[in-house]
Design a protein around this nucleic acid. Structure first.
Lengths: 286, 286
DNA sequence: GTTCCGCATGAATCGATAG
DNA sequence: ACTATCGATTCATGCGGAA
């Protein structure tokens, strides 16, 4: 490992993009300056070609210094959302995520909630002793019992739109509505008509985006978008220390939040630059 | 607590019902005699009036002697399914489930998989810092890497893809293909035709049962039914050490499995007796 | 313009094979 | 014995071309 390290930063509109090791960049950031951290770190032994490929046994030790810095840079009423899933090793689920939660609590984090991301189109395959894995964890950590949460921002309005669409509601539309509200599979549509808005639960139904176009994001933009709306307001600062192709930052900018991204891998950093430049020019879609 | 303990047992058809402390009853059971354990133990600090209310801090210590006995009475190729969810204490998720998994592995259990039960109609309510909790864990533990799993028993109807693909294939085409046996084509087509069903994932979508006749089961019968079909065959032995009103046992009997239930609380035991008597008389519905 | 269909593509996992 | 690599398995999704 290098003792010396360098990082460069590029500002594009409301986005600040760092190219370098996230631990180095985080240590240079001021205390209590971030409203929301949303990230999906490289999973253990995954993406070995682009990232180092952390062994499951070393994962907790590798992540704890990073989470310590995130605790410092987060505002007291801010939130840290961690998208992660343990892999199967020798026919058994690894335990590093469980151990990570326990160790982060010792650091001072509060484990407030665990959201479930139900991946409707999960990876195919068949095995004699296992079904396809169709869910991932979104762990919510906080510094304090009290934190900012804007529940109304993720409520789904059920006004004229639903009524006009209900008649010719095809399967696609129904599925899309399911993924927005997360309350099931289309049976409740009639009930929704009577209400203006529906509250979501802690189960999210989103399909992974299709990677036809070379942009292969680990998660769909709707995922960070949902948490950005839930935990931040316009002008707030969103940080992704493992920015990858910049999906989290794009979602933040589209919602008029300020975005900070860190990415160590050169090709991903350049892809992120390209994506953010496009996003900065494009009109904001709400 | 009593030093002495007693338990009584009632046999009704293929069901053996014990009234007593589950640890006492389990210790009297022979080794390797159970194919599937499916249970939903009293949650920490829940059901205080019936079970005494185990404090979250004591939960792991309380459960480990029981899981040790379950490990003993389970057949080597059997499965233990544990339905559990951590409760919120002081605005934070408790960690006893995480700790329980880690401790059970030290006992010799293998943590094979974690299924998600998505409760479509979850408990209503609204809180300023939390959404409704719409999911629970079904933890799958095994003694060995190899265990019995009958995946075909839980296959589900497939999506549009295969249907549309097969519809366009007329009978003539199909027969022409079939006649080409030996060239490899016929066999492939035959496999496609069977493909009207797909394997499920590790996310289950089941609604919680409505409180029918004054007594609401902790979980819908479909939940144990799914795992009973997946992990056992007819004639196998299903055990629920916290049988409650007997939902797991009813599901087992309906699938022609033998059932063993243990329940310490008198009113629940009698309710279970009544339910099982009814189930024993009722025709088996498949 | 619609609707339909073909196709590539995944934060996967297992078992066998090779060093 | 223990680890690294490879092929086979499988299905929801969106895009692009065709009817």
């Amino acid at each position: 490992m290098n003792v010396q390290s360098t990082s460069t930063a590029v500002q594009i509109g409301d986005a600040l993009l760092h190219h370098g090791d996230c631990l180095d960049v985080l240590r240079a950031m001021p205390d209590a300056s971030v409203d929301l951290v949303f990230t999906s770190p490289p999973y253990a032994d995954q993406r070995r070609n682009t990232y180092g490929g952390i062994h499951p046994d070393d994962y907790v030790e590798w992540f704890l210094p990073i989470s310590a810095e995130l605790l410092r840079v987060l505002k007291p009423e801010g939130t840290f959302c961690l998208n992660i899933k343990e892999k199967v090793v020798n026919g058994e689920r690894s335990t590093y995520v469980l151990e990570l939660i326990l160790e982060m609590r010792k650091q001072g984090w509060r484990w407030t909630e665990e959201f479930i991301w139900h991946k409707k189109n999960c990876y195919p395959g068949k095995w004699p002793n296992r079904f396809r894995d169709a869910w991932e964890r979104i762990l919510q950590f906080n510094r304090q019992k009290k934190f900012h949460m804007y529940q109304e921002a993720v409520m789904v309005p059920m006004g004229d739109w639903a009524k006009s669409r209900l008649r010719k509601l095809g399967d696609n539309d129904r599925k899309r509505m399911d993924s927005q509200v997360g309350s099931g599979f289309g049976k409740n549509i009639a009930n929704w008509l009577k209400r203006d808005k529906a509250y979501p639960t802690n189960v999210l139904h989103l399909a992974t985006e299709c990677a036809n176009k070379g942009h292969s994001a680990a998660f769909p933009k709707d995922l960070p978008d949902w948490f950005i709306r839930l935990f931040t307001q316009e002008g707030d600062v969103v940080l992704d220390p493992f920015a990858g192709s910049g999906t989290t930052l794009e979602a933040a900018l589209a919602r008029k939040r300020r975005a900070i991204g860190i990415e160590i891998h050169q090709p991903y950093f350049e892809l992120m630059l390209e994506n953010i430049r496009k996003a900065a020019q494009a009109p904001v879609l709400l």
